[in-house]
Amino acid sequence: MISENLIVDRGVSAGDNWITIAAESAHEALSSLKEEGYRLLVFLTCVDHLADSSREWPSRYELVYQLRNMDSLEQLRVRAFVDGDPPHVDSVSDLFPPGNWDERETYDMFGIVFENHPDLTRILMPDDWVGHPLRRDYPVGGEVVEFSEEHETWQTAPDKA
């Protein structure tokens, strides 16, 4: 059983149960949850809360682990808040094999460093890519659409577009 002192907060969001744990204890908490029966890591991802004024956030990055117990059909979302540049957290790919690629994707897209990951390299972007595209301060990119508002500013001041 996951000990209560690992849980920082708990609640329900749109019908989904969730708990918050401290990022330092992520590996410990997830391994005890695995013992408890949550043996499938459905997905692992990150949310960037940069400049989100709708709620109070303890830190900029929120790691989300969606777990499932395939026998009792229970689902649990585990949140862990991390900060820093780059943020560090322990890898759980030894507990949950599908976490391996998910962690590589999260590293690629958000620049979160997973300690003890067997092969933490970029997975979707080219190896020499600079930046982490899904961070909120990374521009969407692409090209300026003609006749749009951005196009007018771009025409007058190409450096500021």
């Binding site: 969001s13 749109a14 019908g15 989904d16 459905v42 997905f43 991802t45 949310v47 989100d52 709708s54 709620r55 989300v64 969606q66 689902q75 979302r77």
Partner: peptide
Amino acid sequence: PPGDVYVAVESGRGENGCYVVSDGT
């Protein structure tokens, strides 16, 4: 409304899920 939700459906090749986070905008 602000919040987050995960919904999974069965597609032709397995669990096709969508995790959505809203900040109320």
